[in-house]
C-alpha cells in the first residue's frame, strides 16, 4: 500500500511540482490549496503525511495544524 501524502499549499506551482516529484517516488499524493479544503481532504483521504505550508490565505498552516490536532488525527 502506497503511503498517502497530503500537500497543502496555496501556490499551484508548488503543489504541482511537489505532487509530481512525490508521485515519481511512488507516493499517493493528494493536494489542497487551503486549510479548509485540507481539513475536508484529511477526513476523506486520511493521509499518513501532510506537507503543510505555513503561509496561506483562508486558514493558515499553523491554524490548520492546531485544528488537525484538535480533531485527534
Amino acid at each position: 500500500m502506497k503511503t498517502k501524502v497530503l500537500i497543502v499549499d496555496d501556490e499551484s506551482s508548488i503543489r504541482k511540482v511537489l505532487s509530481g516529484a512525490l508521485s515519481d517516488e511512488g507516493y499517493l499524493v493528494e493536494v489542497a490549496e487551503n486549510g479548509k479544503l485540507a481539513l475536508e481532504k484529511m477526513l476523506s483521504f486520511q493521509p499518513q503525511v501532510v506537507l503543510l505550508d505555513i503561509w496561506m490565505p483562508e486558514m493558515d498552516g499553523i491554524f490548520s495544524r492546531n485544528l488537525f490536532r484538535l480533531s485527534e488525527f
Partner: peptide, 21 residues
C-alpha cells in the same frame, strides 16, 4: 521576497526533478 521566493522553489524543484528523472 515573498513574491520572488515562492516561484523560486518550484523552479528549483522542477529543474532538480528534470535532472533526476
Amino acid at each position: 521576497a515573498h513574491e520572488i521566493k515562492n516561484p523560486l522553489t518550484p523552479i528549483k524543484l522542477s529543474a532538480q526533478r528534470l535532472q533526476k528523472k
